[in-house]
Design a protein around this nucleic acid. Structure first.
Lengths: 214, 214, 214, 214
DNA sequence: AATGAATGAGCATTCATTCAT
DNA sequence: TATGAATGAATGCTCATTCAT
């Protein structure tokens, strides 16, 4: 994996072996297959975590041969990256939709819309935690980038929503809001526990007040 | 591998192969070693998660041979359980200390005390996330039990603090508060990011208001 | 470790993790390799017994990497089972051949034919003892089943040979004969010792008389 | 185990590190303890076979600390040797008793007495198979020596019993008889199977006839 | 190009044996 | 001397990745 065998003294100088990346599928068949592979990857990663998920199971769950999985995602890391990217796209699109309508929203509505972004897709909810917090091979790297980008967008929304907000203020609030969004996912994801529904309601109310009281 | 040594007919019937448990060290040397092993285990689990953590690295980080690790913790699960137990003890003790003084505290103070419980020990902060949320072999089992017990204590504190509170109300609030406590750890744990200090302050203020406005 | 992946509520209920079985090789290369692995397994088990035999040595002796061995035989038990099955096939076929000709045989001939069944394949002779008597993980289970099935066939042959024989008589005789067959293998297998050839002749004569005197 | 680390170039020349042997217990306490250890060893070896038997379990079953076991038997092999020796003593003594009375016995009686030698002690019966046939680390060595010595004694008995017998004849017969003795143990040891009692009776009758018809 | 068998480094765990106490 | 904790080589097995077909 990350085992970097130091090269012999004779090594060719630069060459810099380009980091492997996901291959774009060309034909229709390939596109469908990649989608299935990503879905399978998402569910296995969500259920078992990065390390415990096996490439073999992911391929099997997608009904694809293992060789095919490696055709598109040359290693486990690339697949994980692709998953992060796909998830990021969904979430960013959702945030962008909010931004487009931000002037029509009051605090309560904005809070609800933001909270729904991460909570919405039950299927991705569990992956979200894995993607946003889990300890990857190089801890924090991948999740960190994603978090950064999403917070940025939340901050933008806030500044559009309350034009008076200073950049710094918006940034701080975006950190708080984004954490509140993730926390709500956690409240949702945990299996049945007493007071679950009410606690979620409390949490939403809490965030609404945060935005209302600005 | 569920090694079932079928016993001859003469053997004692159900013998039930007692589930393996951590062995208490007897001598001084052993006590120190177990402490080191637990610390090593805590840091490796915290960094890599349950599955990715290797017993070999844990032993190495404790400066102990692998056999020693297994002397005290007959398998990976038992070590994880011991870690949960040790962490639980610390946190429960901290919560009990709060309960003992609960009548002297106003909302702001109570909020601060509760939030500090999980945030306090920098060393354990990172483990906390692993212990309270991570995907274990049997996902949710171990963390679930711990969460349940800690929420129970928070609920007790609330009922002592505001004798008027109904059990159900306290329960819901304990869920919210406990989630807020975990979230603050996450805010702390994430490496350097813009607005970190202020966001943490916001979060604290938020929780203080939650308790003040009851 | 009886790794129980607890499934979410949505999963197919009883899934019963099918007990691992030997995988049939598909390609020509695989067929040859499996044959080599079985041979290697046979010789190592024969020489060292079940517990002392190591998968590593078996793979090495077959000139195969350890992963290949596990490709076809997902664990040591399955390999042992496959060996038992292969041996059983050979022996059962030999017994069936005798049964087909039983009406043409006198007592002496029948005795010789039966005795040859286990003694015949020098290569498998040694494995026979391991398979028929050795102490396996679950002592007696596997060998027991094999013994039972072989005795059954011997009893059938006897009843076909002497139609007057009562079932019970045939059963008892089959036990005796089968033991005599195994014993002759032992006499053969033991390395050079004084009187070996003559002792084997005695033993054969003894069995011949047992069948002649009915 | 058999791993012989070649000595460094500076090695002291001869020194020949005497092979480890069982230590004779001096005091009464030690004698009792050694007996217990041997009994425990016998039962564990009999149940699990040489390789699967663990020194720890043997010590535990004897109620002795592991260090104590190693005090008397410096390694597993030595313990096994001691067991063989103890078993040999018993059996040799029994054979010697037969020899002392051989002139009073007819063929039937002699057959029964010989057969009883190995079958007699239920406790040791199972160990007998392990000791007389099992595949040890160095296959055949230990059991081979024991077999040889016991056959010798059987041959002696035969020559005393029928003074006319030529040495070679007696030798061959002793091989056959000894195999018959072992086989009867096998017939006894196998758990319940149909026709067990009758088969054992047959076998005895068979051996009786062998001796009667000389 | 598509497939899945083949590979082997790496992991959890065991146990004979030693040696500090 | 007696004890049992400590040690680490060896074992069964997994799984990301490659490559022959």
């Amino acid at each position: 994996m990350a085992s970097e065998k130091s090269s012999s003294a004779i090594t060719v100088p630069a060459q810099q072996a380009a980091p492997p990346t996901a291959k774009e599928p060309k034909r229709k068949r390939g596109i469908a297959r990649v989608a299935k592979l990503l879905d399978a990857g998402a569910s296995v990663f969500a259920e078992q975590g990065y390390k415990a998920a096996t490439m073999t199971e992911i391929a099997a769950r997608a009904g694809a041969p293992i060789g095919s999985l490696y055709q598109f995602f040359p290693n486990k890391d690339v697949l994980a990256d692709a998953l992060v990217a796909r998830y990021a796209e969904h979430v960013e699109a959702a945030l962008d939709r909010i931004r487009a309508q931000v002037s029509d929203l009051d605090g309560i509505q904005l809070a609800d819309r933001l909270l729904d972004v991460l909570v919405a897709h039950a299927a991705e909810r569990s992956l979200a935690l894995s993607l946003l917090d889990a300890r990857w091979e190089q801890p924090g790297v991948r999740p960190g980038v994603l978090r950064e980008s999403l917070r940025r967008r939340v901050a933008d929304i806030l500044m559009l929503w309350r034009p008076g907000l200073v950049e710094e203020q918006a940034q701080v609030m975006s950190v708080v809001l984004f954490q509140a969004m993730k926390s709500l996912v956690q409240l949702h994801e945990e299996k049945r526990y007493p007071g679950k529904a009410e606690a979620i309601a409390h949490w939403r109310g809490w965030v609404q007040r945060y935005l209302t009281e600005i």
